[in-house]
Design a protein around this nucleic acid. Structure first.
Lengths: 206, 206
DNA sequence: CAATTTCTTGACTAGTTGGTCAGCTATGCT
DNA sequence: AGCATAGCTGACCAACTAGTCAAGAAATTG
């Protein structure tokens, strides 16, 4: 049943190209501001072709969000609960910074979605994100009980990590502007990651 | 020339009401997603009346942005360069947290604007924000030179403060959801402010 | 009071945009 | 080859929305 290699790859290629450009356009113009025509132009496809793969704009948007959430889960996994606070947190922060660098548009779409009240991802926030957060808060509280870190509020620590790392993606434009209009280079990303990691780890006495 | 009290106050009242609701609608739906009709409905005015005071949607949006920037400047002033690091930074962080609580919509509009490449506020970023940032970096470097704080990268410290404090406004919906759907109460805002301040101050050895 | 200016508003227009559809082409199967 | 299926596309339409406008209401002035 090795049905049609050419068709399958063509399909996957089209889907991939559309989703890639849709992410960019949604990030740049927001859900309403992004037009199917603009996405089609970016993907170098006729608009009707988009509607062949995705029945509605909302369906396309949902798919984009879905993919972003997958990446988010990947970062979440890197928070190793069996490691030491220093090890677990610095690994997690580094991973989040890498994502901010590699997928700024995805991060922006996510941010836009949350700012606008998360009409689509409400479920994720309540279920998956909620459960993950609770489990990590438990771990952090254990670290505190064991005297491995200072008694800080775990929730606010997590918010600080999210906010700071995602800032480099979501506010990329501001960061670049304040960097003289030049994108951060390798060493600057490295310095940013080090700074964030050090301030936070020292901040909690790890 | 004490020209017409009733008219002037009516005018100011209308302007104020429109701007207030416009901020909310822009925050919730983005620039393109917000419609003049929706703003008019929120302000309980006929749409044509909006166009009497603001010729175009963009003009209204600019005015909203302008007001937000004023608030931002107010916070910027609270960064007292003649105080000690502990004093200056904790005051600044507290002020920024207060703004996040009092003006979440303004913060969201600003965030949206930056995420989408800051088409309107590019000037502010380059001039006013750029100059302010440079001046504070100088002060922070002085603190480092005097041994009052650890040698950290001032720029990334500022980004961390901005990101973390604004997170409570921009990601309000996520914060509330993870708080069991309840808005933060007085004591929770206080705890958040304390946590943020403590982690950051300890993080830089202040 | 009448004239003038400011403010208000329903109705309309032009332009945009999400989505449809009928017909086309390319691929795979027997 | 011939048939079936998946993929592609230009042309079209209905809905929505920013902005206009002319006519009227309300306030101010001389």
């Amino acid at each position: 049943m090795d049905t049609s290699r050419k068709r399958n790859t063509a399909r996957e290629e089209s889907l991939s190209v559309i989703l890639h450009h849709a992410e960019r356009i949604f990030a740049e113009y927001g859900f309403k501001g992004a037009t199917m025509q603009a996405i089609a132009d970016a993907a170098a496809l006729p608009k009707a072709n988009l509607h062949y793969y995705f029945p509605t704009k909302l369906a396309l948007y949902r798919e984009v969000i879905e993919r972003i959430f997958t990446i988010w889960l990947e970062a979440a996994d890197s928070f190793d609960t069996s490691a030491s606070p220093r090890e677990a947190l610095s690994r997690y922060i580094r991973k989040k910074m890498e994502i901010s660098r590699a997928h700024p548009c995805g991060s922006k779409v996510w941010a836009n979605e949350v700012i606008q009240g998360a009409p689509i991802i409400q479920d994720y926030l309540q279920t998956t994100l909620g459960a993950w957060t609770d489990s990590r808060i438990e771990v952090i509280n254990r670290w505190i009980a064991e005297g491995q870190i200072d008694p800080i509020n775990p929730r606010h620590l997590l918010y600080m990590i999210w906010a700071t790392t995602q800032h480099y993606a979501d506010f990329q434009h501001q960061v670049v502007t304040l960097n003289g209009g030049k994108r951060l280079d390798d060493s600057q990303w490295d310095a940013a990651t080090k700074s964030v990691t050090e301030i936070i780890l020292r901040g909690i006495g790890a």
